[in-house]
Design a protein around this nucleic acid. Sequence first.
DNA 1: AATGAATGAGCCTTCATTCAT
DNA 2: GATGAATGAAGGCTCATTCAT
Lengths: 213, 213, 213, 213
Amino acid sequence: MSSTATQTSKPPSTEDRLLDAAAELFAARGYANVTIRDISDKAGANIAAVNYHFGSKEQLHALAMEHARQRALKEDPYPAGPPPTRPLTPEQKLRRHLRAMLGRAFATGPAGWYMQIVLREMVDPTPALKQTIDANIAPHQRKLEGIVGQIMREDPDSEPVKDISAALLATAIFYHSCRPAVEHMRPGFKFDQGTAERLTDRIVAMVLDGAAK
Amino acid sequence: MSSTATQTSKPPSTEDRLLDAAAELFAARGYANVTIRDISDKAGANIAAVNYHFGSKEQLHALAMEHARQRALKEDPYPAGPPPTRPLTPEQKLRRHLRAMLGRAFATGPAGWYMQIVLREMVDPTPALKQTIDANIAPHQRKLEGIVGQIMREDPDSEPVKDISAALLATAIFYHSCRPAVEHMRPGFKFDQGTAERLTDRIVAMVLDGAAK
Amino acid sequence: MSSTATQTSKPPSTEDRLLDAAAELFAARGYANVTIRDISDKAGANIAAVNYHFGSKEQLHALAMEHARQRALKEDPYPAGPPPTRPLTPEQKLRRHLRAMLGRAFATGPAGWYMQIVLREMVDPTPALKQTIDANIAPHQRKLEGIVGQIMREDPDSEPVKDISAALLATAIFYHSCRPAVEHMRPGFKFDQGTAERLTDRIVAMVLDGAAK
Amino acid sequence: MSSTATQTSKPPSTEDRLLDAAAELFAARGYANVTIRDISDKAGANIAAVNYHFGSKEQLHALAMEHARQRALKEDPYPAGPPPTRPLTPEQKLRRHLRAMLGRAFATGPAGWYMQIVLREMVDPTPALKQTIDANIAPHQRKLEGIVGQIMREDPDSEPVKDISAALLATAIFYHSCRPAVEHMRPGFKFDQGTAERLTDRIVAMVLDGAAK
DNA sequence: AATGAATGAGCCTTCATTCAT
DNA sequence: GATGAATGAAGGCTCATTCAT
């Protein structure tokens, strides 16, 4: 997909390995539940490498988020799937948006890191929470509010639209950040793309027509 | 046993002060983000008092949860409001349930501690997560699934019912555990009972008829 | 054995229960490995009772030692067995002495507490070590040295006599204070009176004629 | 690698200083009576250094034991003295063995640490007691039992041989672990190699011919 | 005479950070 | 560019002792 695939790719730098390790761990466990030793061990680097390359755990977290964003763009361009040939209906857009959000929350591997780090930041905030929201969450959520606004035929900035949109975001946070709880409450629940698909269908249907049909 | 109940009641015991402090702090910040020094300081007690009265931080957490449950029962008997004079419709039941859940998630003070500690446990689990779920969350959620099952006219144990019910629980977790994020994303958003009422209306309406009406 | 056995014996006082509990625990585990909570729990008393009745853990230890001495005198008057009808030979005296020492080191129950506390004090000393030695160990050991002196036909205060006598004391300390180690090194080794008897025979024989006969 | 071996050697690493300090303190006072602060202070290191280099106090204890073994091998190769030109008699072997054991129990400085730590472990056991016995004590004791077996003309695994061998081990434990008691009971008693020599002679004589000659 | 409650000192450990090479 | 070593702050916990009835 990138330039010359024939050339031997260099081994990733320590910095990149740290970013990968950090992104994966922060995505899976949240900021507070990851130590820089966890990260440097996973990256095969010295524990001092984190501070050497990134200054602090906090800055590494911020950069890991951006790194995860880049990796997600490559591996899973948003919105998923080929560009549509004709304009999507609001219902289709909602489906695409939810599907991408849940799909990433359920993803294993780099494609999901970005969404997962961002969702984690909301329940386990760092001092950079506000900036993270402004740069990473608010734009995403405004997009969702635009779609929901169309469906509800209301101003995207109106309270009803924001309330409903928040409930949709809440679902993604729930399945990612409460995974141990879900696994215990619903034994056999599968955290895979099939489930993401099913939940998307279910929620889109509810938004459009209610749960009772 | 003492004279008139109108007279000033005796000052609460250290044990009670610790339970109150612990419940409030665990509710607000979660298990890992509270130190026993925070708790003992807030309670005006020595740091060793936690161990003396409760054995460990973990035990204090468990007892604070039960303590919060008792306080919630006194101050905010469930379901809120007077007992109905006639059987409630499923729609009314759903409204009551959601209203209570959100009301407690938004409550300031003891009435909300129990719900808040339990919601926190899901995103910031302790070793007692499974037991907490079995004893405190699962019954509550099964009740919700019963209601949703009636509305959807499906088996309460069926996947669709559980999926929708989870989305409703997710909303309560979201507003409580992501409060700093919400406050930044939606400046002016009020965490009060009026908002709980409004959100309840909104979500009930969506469940019944969809967001687009 | 004591006065009127027909009269109802009073329940032991808290003080006595503490002394019993302390003696048993100090005998079994040594000063440092017993907490005053262990003692008060075993005695069914409040943890403050130790300091109330005895001032400190250290004083309780001292008094428990004396208490244990009294109990040992009652239950197992030294030297064991009926008073001899004719003067004992030095060899008989050595046997009696060693048998009593090992028997008490191996005893379960009050009869052994005194010897065991004293032996423990030597490997796990308290600040009262010197006094304990002067009052409880030195007299006992001087007696042994008298016997050994007769057998060796040397001055009881001479170095050879003291060296050999110390080796005999060492054996009793070893079997009591290194019990976990002995149990692992010699599986099946029985800490009972039969073993005390056998070891006594073995050691007396060695002292008299050497191990090789 | 560097210039001449005669020149001043580089200062020992923190790790080595910690091992030395730990070995010396554990040898002198036993596991429970030494704090990691004692060790790090003595080594001139930060208290966190113990955890950094060794993970835990328990691990440090295990490694200090091995470290002490290495130092003992260098400074006091076993068996002491030049290799014999002709096979030793059992009596000579017994003398060598006892002399080494007591000599190390009495040693001041690194040559004695290993024996002393191991002897301490028996009266003040750590969770690694069984392993310590299997790896460090049992082989040593089996060797002694082999010698005693030859002298007694009995199976080295027989009860009489084990009983007598235990009494000899007991003596070494006694002089090391009960040192404060011995110092008070026998003022003027010297814990030096001359005394080790004398005690060896005394005990060997007793084993061979009895104390009464 | 006795006790439940409370305390302060100390313990081992964890962790992000800083130092020196 | 990178790292092994070292550090200080903080955390939960234990325990003998003291306080207030």
